[in-house]
Design a protein around this nucleic acid. Sequence first.
DNA 1: GTGGGTGCAAAGTGTTTGCAAGTGT
DNA 2: ACACTTGCAAACACTTTGCACCCAC
Lengths: 163, 163
Amino acid sequence: MPAQAKSDAKEKFLQFLEQKNLRLTTQRQAIIDTVFGTEQHFTAEELLDWSRRRDPTVSRATVYRTLPLLTESGLVHEMDFGKDHKVYDPNYAEHPHHNHLICSDCSKIVEFESEKIEALESEISRKLGFSMKSQRLQITGGCEELKRLGACRNKENSPLSAP
Amino acid sequence: MPAQAKSDAKEKFLQFLEQKNLRLTTQRQAIIDTVFGTEQHFTAEELLDWSRRRDPTVSRATVYRTLPLLTESGLVHEMDFGKDHKVYDPNYAEHPHHNHLICSDCSKIVEFESEKIEALESEISRKLGFSMKSQRLQITGGCEELKRLGACRNKENSPLSAP
DNA sequence: GTGGGTGCAAAGTGTTTGCAAGTGT
DNA sequence: ACACTTGCAAACACTTTGCACCCAC
């Protein structure tokens, strides 16, 4: 749990804001502190909930207006698992090439990196005439708990443990 | 262009319908003929357009009600490229493990398969306690045309060439 | 002081669904 | 005939946006 890396990320985002002449409002403070204070993946709605605990005046609109800034800065990664909502990943700055394993039962997400896979991806891209810019790899499967118990406990995957 | 495989897929889908006691209406005919008559990826809206050329009575609701049947049958693959709409891939039956290369400029999609990558995916899943069920790999990059000309011609990627 | 920022609620967008009428088997 | 199907339009879920007021710099 590299707390240092997290505060670095926050620092970088503050610089990003400054460089774009954007202001650090109290609402953005709350949102930023929330984002860079967790390692969990989150949805827009969850970010709203959590941010409101720090500052109840944060509105849904502001969350939705801040999210693009976060992704644009390159510090947060937007993901789409085919569900109805997007999921955001605050660990992007530290591991910009990571992939995801998702449990088909409880939606648990595990991150991993693989240089071997990345090398193959790059090679294949080249062969097909593409210059690779980015990649997304998601593997769906049964997690260890599902195999062992036949079902996952926190099936409804509600990240109530707010940061 | 394995026309044989395509009509096989259509045949399989008809069996799928029968086995589930679902009827072959004229609207479904038009939709099915469209889906199994192209190798292009398509959106729900495009499928509606194309199907209506075969049978103008096809409604949006019917397309949206048929799409889940197609994916459930395993013959069509639903994909989510993070855009606002889902994309459907009718080549799934023939190449169930294929991945996608997408041009960041013109959205051109190229399919590819790699046993090596798949083996690595399976190995990593196992190491992390998962039993792999499925995977999605999307690589984004610049296509050959973009590199050569600096821009892609059919940038707006409108598949007007209806099947 | 002023230009960016905010909350609210209305508008958008892609997809789903209730209902009454229609149709394949 | 009887279920399954359909078209229509209203409903949905998530996200975006217009507007008038507000506040960080």
